[in-house]
Amino acid sequence: MAIRCVVVTPERTELDREADFIALPMYDGELGVQAGRAPMIGRLGYGVLRLQTTAGPQRFFVDGGFAQVEADVVSVLTARAIAVDLLNTDEATKSLAEALELPSDTPEQAQIKETAVHRARGQLRASR
């Protein structure tokens, strides 16, 4: 029994393949999906999407978005999906520094800053 994993970004379908096990980086922690999971829609955080395939493990950094599980098909909608090997630690460190520099005088600004920091931290974690 295998599940199909489809990763879609606005530019193209990044990935469409079978996997035995998928770990989704949800907004509030990791969620593992195996065949026969109940239908679910979830909000993704900034983290690593892991696939356990017959060819070996695969890891992608996903930049927020949504995941939908239905009938053994996991569709991941995200702005960006980058293979973890292609991430650059220096760049991630720099973007974290930039995010920490953002102003947070009003609640709205604070929220924008928080999102930027979350993203940068996720990217940094994934790149290591």
Binding site: M26, L31, P39, I41, G64, G65
Partner: peptide, 24 residues
């Protein structure tokens, strides 16, 4: 007739769907 589970909650997903939908 599939019942969906919303994680962490429907409201939280909506919060994210709207800006994403604008960007797209």
């Amino acid at each position: 007739n599939s019942q969906y589970e919303f994680l962490p909650s429907a409201e939280s997903i909506l919060e994210e769907v709207v800006p994403t939908s604008f960007k797209v």
